[in-house]
Simulated assay, not measured.
Amino acid sequence: MMTQGMFENYFLPGVWVTVQVTLFSAALAAVVALIVGTLRASRLWIVRFLSGVYFELFRGTSALILMFWLVFAVPLMFRWQFAPMYAGVLALGLTYGAYGSEVVRGALAAVPVAQREAGVALGFTRFQRLRRIELPQAWPEMVPPFNNLLIELLKGTALVSTIMVADMTYAGNLVRIGSNESAPVYTLLLVLYFVMAFVLTRGMRVLERHAKAGVGQAPPRGGLWSRLALRESAGEGSGALTAGGAAR
């Protein structure tokens, strides 16, 4: 059976490596998504074309194969050696950044045209309109899709185990080989990934609440039961109004 020493010596360091890969990849993906997504909304066709090429290239390639290419092909082609963890972060960040750029582009496109025209009337430059008008209104619409991408990125970090990065999955395989116990190891891995995804989701929900509050669209703070109670009270109020109208 898996011992306490195996958990402390393998799983805990693997959890920390997974957290690092997730955070670094998410930071890189956020920067790439913001830049590429903004460029895809440009008025210049050449800028839209080049950013679109990037989007299609990384959307149509495998993050796993990109990791292999960075680790095994780049040293042969360019005499440059990537550390496995850096290669994994780069591959995940560029890939999920391409997905996130479509979220940014769509959110910017959803900003009402009248808001952009107001910025032009005030004499704002393109950068000023983007910073002061478009991004603040588009940001609340980006958070829910970014939440999904972040969870997918967390689960995608398991790919780095194939290039010898000692994340949770890599540590789990070592423990499975050492203890000859597959069921407890993979069950624990499922639980750990679920807990981490749940924590990230709750954090993104808080971020979404603050983002919507910034534009006057804050959702109710209560949980499921309080929302149901609000709906029931609203239904009773509308029923009372209807009955009052019928009595008249």
Rank of each mutant, 00 (worst) to 15 (best):
N148F: 08
N148G: 10
N148P: 09
N148E: 11
L149M: 12
L149V: 05
L149Q: 14
L149C: 14
L150V: 07
L150Y: 07
L150N: 05
I151W: 00
I151T: 11
I151M: 07
E152K: 09
L153T: 08
L153N: 14
L153H: 13
L154I: 03
K155F: 08
K155A: 15
K155P: 11
K155I: 15
G156I: 10
G156R: 02
G156W: 01
G156M: 13
G156P: 07
G156V: 14
T157E: 15
T157D: 05
A158P: 02
A158W: 10
L159T: 13
L159P: 14
L159R: 07
L159G: 13
S161P: 01
T162D: 13
I163F: 15
I163M: 12
I163L: 11
M164S: 14
M164Y: 05
M164E: 08
V165W: 00
V165R: 01
V165N: 03
A166M: 09
A166L: 06
A166D: 14
M168I: 07
M168V: 06
M168E: 02
T169N: 03
T169E: 00
T169Y: 06
Y170L: 10
A171F: 15
A171V: 07
G172D: 03
G172Y: 05
N173P: 01
L174H: 13
L174T: 02
V175R: 02
V175G: 05
V175T: 10
V175C: 04
V175M: 02
R176H: 11
R176M: 12
R176A: 09
I177E: 08
I177C: 04
I177K: 08
G178Y: 02
G178C: 11
G178W: 01
G178V: 07
G178R: 09
S179Q: 03
S179R: 05
N180Q: 09
E181V: 05
E181F: 12
E181S: 08
S182Y: 13
S182F: 12
A183V: 04
A183R: 10
P184E: 01
P184D: 03
P184G: 02
P184F: 05
P184K: 03
P184M: 00
P184I: 00
P184A: 01
V185A: 14
V185N: 13
Y186D: 04
Y186F: 12
Y186E: 04
Y186P: 07
T187W: 00
T187F: 00
T187Y: 00
T187D: 01
T187E: 00
T187N: 04
L188G: 06
L188A: 09
L188R: 03
L188P: 00
L188V: 15
L189I: 03
L189G: 02
L189W: 02
L189M: 06
L189P: 02
L190N: 03
L190S: 07
L190V: 10
L190C: 10
V191M: 03
V191F: 06
L192A: 12
L192S: 08
L192E: 01
L192R: 00
Y193N: 05
Y193C: 03
Y193K: 06
Y193S: 03
F194I: 00
F194Y: 14
F194Q: 08
V195W: 02
V195H: 09
V195K: 14
M196D: 12
M196L: 07
M196W: 01
